[in-house]
């Protein structure tokens, strides 16, 4: 056990409420820090927006052709719903991490993470919260403008009333959190693997496809759809898109949000367990 860590932990005030509130404030600050870090890359965000809009227009062409060829509706998607799917999913690309890369992965690889364990903060929560902050920021320069471009150039379905919008916001936040927590899992594998690049590439290849980035997962053949919903990936993109676009009615939306929350709990718990095991491994081997 590192002496420093023990000191810091015992210094924290006892009693649940006195302990939770300062911690919450710390995480809120980390969230804000992530948000601000995102704001430093304005030119990058612009580049991303151009890419999103271009891919969006190409997808409109081909997916609209599919809807029209299928007689105006395919797997419950008409033109309005398909447009919403395309533009919202493109808009979320800057926020939902489908690349599998993260700062914490680099810190674990270099061993810098040992200093993170000395801070009186939960390493997993701190890393995830900061990433969520960065992802939320990306909605401003990439998410909202992309959807606006789609709305102006093509038009699309929208959320089903104010309550639908609220459900959409909740689903979006859950989606971002699930993606940050899952990418965190890729990162903590670094406690046991010398090189996590392979895992990261696998994540990158599989996540986009199963999350419904390329085509809506309801267009998948039955068996592939089954594979997709057995993973957390649709919770990152497809479900938030369905809720936000109003394709899912309120009842279905609540159900989807429930599924997202369950996945969030699962990947977060797994991440917490792996973080503890990783920390024990570091302590045994002396970092």
């Amino acid at each position: 056990m590192r002496p420093g860590a023990e000191d810091l932990v015992t210094e924290a005030p006892r009693g649940i409420s006195r302990r939770v509130r300062p911690a919450l404030r710390t995480y809120a600050r980390l969230l804000l820090a992530g948000f601000r870090r995102g704001s430093r890359y304005r030119l990058a965000a612009f580049g991303g927006l151009v890419a999103n809009a271009t891919f969006g227009l190409l997808k409109v062409a081909v997916l609209f052709a599919v809807v029209e060829a299928a007689g105006g509706e395919v797997s419950g998607y008409d033109l309005g719903a398909m447009s919403a799917y395309i533009w919202i999913s493109q808009g979320l690309l800057g926020s939902v991490n489908l690349m599998g890369r993260s700062d914490i992965a680099e810190r674990i690889r270099t061993g810098d993470v040992t200093t993170d364990f000395l801070r009186p903060l939960d390493v997993q929560a701190a890393a995830v919260v900061e990433d969520v902050g960065k992802s939320l920021f990306a909605l401003i320069p990439r998410g909202i403008p992309t959807v606006t471009i789609g709305l102006l150039l093509v038009g699309m379905d929208g959320p089903d009333g104010p309550f639908g919008l609220l459900l959409g916001a909740v689903s979006l936040l859950l989606g971002i959190s699930v993606s940050c927590c899952t990418v965190y899992l890729v990162a903590v594998a670094g406690f046991w693997m010398v090189e996590t690049r392979g895992l990261q590439i696998l994540y990158m290849v599989v996540s986009g496809f199963l999350a419904g980035l390329f085509v809506p997962i309801s267009l998948f053949p039955g068996w592939l759809y089954g594979v997709a919903v057995a993973t957390p990936f649709p919770s990152m993109l497809q479900f938030p898109v369905d809720v936000l676009s109003g394709r899912a009615d309120h009842g279905t939306s609540v159900l989807l949000i429930g599924v997202q929350a369950a996945w969030l709990a699962a990947v977060a718990a797994l991440g917490q367990g792996l973080t503890r095991a990783g920390r024990r491994k570091l302590e045994v081997q002396g970092g």
């Binding site: 612009f46 580049g47 890419a51 190409l58 062409a61 081909v62």
Partner: peptide
């Protein structure tokens, strides 16, 4: 820093090249 904008045409171009352009 805005290099991703060129991805729109390089990788977007690759994507476009695999499509039936008549759509």
């Amino acid at each position: 820093d805005g290099y991703e904008a060129t991805n729109a045409f390089v990788y977007g171009g690759r994507y476009a090249a695999t499509q039936p352009a008549s759509v």
